[in-house]
Simulated scan of single mutants.
Amino acid sequence: MSETQPEEYDVYNCTKDTCPASESIYGYAPSLGANAAFIAIFSVSAVIFTIQGVRTKTRSFSIAMVLGCFCEALGHGGRIMLHYDPFSEVGFKLQICLLTFAPAFLAAGVYLCLKHLVITFGAHISRIKPAWYTYIFISCDVLSLALQGAGGGLASAATGPGSLMNTGNNLMMAGLSFQVFTLLAFATLVTEYFVRVWRHRYELNPRTEELRRSRKFRWFLGALVTAYVAILFRCIYRIAEMAGGWGNPIMRDETTFIVLDSL
């Protein structure tokens, strides 16, 4: 069978005993080592965010990040199931749903930080009240998650290639596209606000001057920007991965998946 014709794969009639891994949707048995490493990384991160949330009382942020890490860990657990059985229905459903949902929770954590950054630099500089950043972007994130959840549910419920799986794929694509739109809108507002911060740099919040000058705060800003860029690229990759349909060449490239989705 040709890899350029994924529609010929009848994965629902294959088992690990009757078909090679190349006949599966992904065309390979996912790496055991890589996925085990990601499970460890995200599990440890979830523990750290939990402890951090308890110590600093950043409840909403910590919950969003813990849920994101939890989805990542379980999703990679599903890929380990696919390592042992590339045709595992449970493994496929776990990883396709949870690894698609995870960025929405992680993005929510990033969105929640903007309100506090605006307060730190100066709420009077912002065009809108700090709380509205949270209301707007978390609402968009929930909508994106709902679309992806509905799509993932339909795709995982499909018993074979057909209209149900295609509908699920289209809903997931819509959710991912809306998530990318939200991320870009977020970047636009952040950029606009910090341009105003620069223009009013002598009018910033005097009570947080020491915090803004601290090395930890600068490291935090760098980590936040890095997280945003990683989430944005991951969502764009997911759109490209899903756009070609199930079993397309991008979906069947494990190296690209590890670099652009897992990292």
Rank of each mutant, 00 (worst) to 15 (best):
L260C: 11
S43K: 07
L221H: 09
A73I: 01
R252C: 01
C235K: 08
W219S: 11
W198I: 07
I80C: 11
R79T: 13
F178W: 14
R127T: 14
G77Y: 08
I236P: 08
Y12K: 09
E192H: 15
C69F: 10
D85E: 04
C140W: 12
M173Y: 10
D10S: 10
W246H: 11
F38G: 07
S22G: 12
L171Q: 02
V54A: 14
H83G: 14
G153E: 05
I236M: 02
R201T: 03
N13E: 01
Q148W: 05
Y26M: 11
S177Y: 00
F194R: 07
H200I: 00
S177H: 02
L145C: 12
L147M: 13
Q148S: 09
L184Y: 11
D261N: 13
Q95P: 11
T188W: 11
P20D: 08
L32I: 09
F137I: 03
T56P: 00
R127N: 15
F61R: 06
Q5S: 12
T100G: 01
E203K: 12
R234P: 09
Y202R: 15
W219D: 07
L176Q: 03
F186E: 04
C69P: 06
G68E: 04
C113E: 11
P20I: 01
L106R: 07
A102Q: 06
F49D: 00
C140D: 00
L184S: 15
L114G: 02
F49P: 02
S126F: 00
T100F: 09
E72I: 05
S156G: 08
T208H: 14
T18M: 03
R234K: 09
P130M: 12
L74K: 11
A146F: 11
A21T: 01
G149R: 05
R79K: 15
G77W: 09
I51N: 08
G247N: 01
I80N: 06
E89D: 13
S31L: 07
G149F: 01
Y84I: 09
A104P: 00
G27D: 03
L99V: 06
Y84R: 10
K93Q: 14
F217P: 05
A155Y: 09
H124M: 00
T255Y: 12
W198F: 10
R199H: 15
L147D: 01
A104T: 15
V195G: 04
F101W: 13
T50I: 11
A240M: 15
R59H: 15
R213P: 02
E3G: 15
V195F: 12
F181H: 02
T58R: 13
F101I: 02
G244D: 01
I80M: 10
A174T: 07
P103Q: 06
A131Q: 13
F194G: 08
L154Y: 12
F194Y: 13
G53S: 05
C113G: 00
T50K: 11
F217W: 10
G53R: 06
A243W: 04
H124P: 04
N166I: 00
V118S: 07
Q179C: 04
G168P: 04
I239N: 06
I125F: 12
W219Y: 14
